[in-house]
Design a protein around this nucleic acid. Structure first.
Lengths: 222, 222
DNA sequence: GGGCGGTTACGTACGATGTACGTCCGGCGT
DNA sequence: ACGCCGGACGTACATCGTACGTAACCGCCC
């Protein structure tokens, strides 16, 4: 069926590679959703037999892990050390948000599978460097980094869930449901204010609060 | 094989119910992990044929949804309105953390499947009531609520990932890996400080920062 | 009491999925 | 020249979710 590569005849098949497998998985996830990711689908995407994938990826879990790593590896974490540290932290968070915007479906993989490992290490390194340059001692810098990451991760998780729900019920969130006014007086009072969707604004609001509070913390005695 | 309930013979089978199905799923998840949850396993847990479950649950996704709802429904969200609003918010966040501690594996289901819907509504209602009582106008209260929920969710997500990684590599996080000192100078400098695991302390640290910052915000003109 | 319709438990069966295993082939070292 | 080894492939199987048809049981009306 499929011919092999021979020296004389240039083949359009560019040799299977772990990177190509991962990349195909990323494309497939972004196009058809995570639910549609199967080894067979990835193989079809590459025009390859299913079992050939296992020469480059031990199993599906590892493939997911590879997807997560690939996505975070694409983040631009470089910042200007001359800027105020809060601006550097903001830039870091926004870099995360940018790739979350570029790879929305893969990002949920990242959130659920790989808060740890080499993935988190890249972000942790950058964040920790910033906190350290800001003058905090190591224990405080660790806590600061963790708080900022928690907030950033959580905001992303919320936005992802919100987006998923929005395209499942294109009309407002509360149009379909009947809310018991005695159990939910405040959300009903808030009304369409809760339905308003401004993920970036919401994110920046909380980020400003958090960064402001951190910046007001006492520094290490030097 | 299995006899039916007849009026004369009292059977130990207490009638299949959606609630019993969901409860069995919760137990199974907490005992054997989310990976082990299958319709067949749930049926076996209840001593029931597989297809009988579908009389009470339309499909597996709905069962997961039921699990999430069950877990959040068990949260004690009652607070003392007389307390300072920041303490009420703290109590709310701690209530979430408590059920996260009681149902660690189910909580990841909640995080990934149900940030929205009735689940979130209960927390949103309580949180929004607190923010409203604190004197903020509706738009600000919404943003405050979202920021606090983002932080809480993110912290929980991080802790879950951390816990999972810790029991996969019982020895330290960095013992196994070789870290490139040129790429990760700061995390290496931090050393075992990063390996320290104090989820509650970390969580309270960030929560205090966030709540303090929010409390310093200007209130609605009344 | 005796059908009887609706509800619920059940068994069978099918398509899809992850992957273990054996085979085969092309290029490279000797 | 020849063996060998890594990678591509096909087959096969266990397991999954669930569509469908069947049968047992309930309460009800005559």
């Amino acid at each position: 069926m499929t011919r092999r590569v021979t020296s004389g005849t240039p083949e359009p098949r560019p040799a299977l590679t772990r990177d190509r497998v991962v990349r195909a998985a990323v494309d497939l996830i972004e196009r058809d959703g995570t639910r549609a990711l199967s080894m067979r689908a990835v193989a079809a995407e590459l025009g390859v037999a299913v079992m050939s994938l296992y020469n480059h990826v031990p199993n599906k879990a590892a493939l997911l892990e590879g997807v997560a790593e690939h996505v975070v590896a694409g983040m631009d974490l470089t910042g200007d050390p001359a800027e105020h540290w809060t601006d550097r932290a903001r830039a870091l968070a926004r870099a995360f948000r940018k790739t979350a915007h570029d790879y929305p479906r893969c990002m949920t993989i990242v959130l659920t599978h790989k808060v740890d490992g080499t993935v988190g290490l890249r972000m942790a390194e950058s964040a920790f460097a910033i906190a350290h340059d800001a003058g905090f001692d190591a224990p405080t810098a660790v806590r600061i980094t963790r708080a900022l990451m928690a907030y950033t991760l959580g905001a992303q998780l919320r936005d992802a869930g919100m987006a998923e729900v929005l395209d499942r019920h294109p009309d407002g969130l509360f149009a379909a449901r009947e809310l018991d006014p005695t159990r939910f007086p405040n959300v009903l009072a808030a009304g369409d204010e809760l339905a308003r969707s401004d993920p970036e604004g919401d994110f920046e609001f909380g980020l400003d609060l958090l960064l402001g509070a951190v910046d007001a913390l006492p520094r290490q005695v030097t």
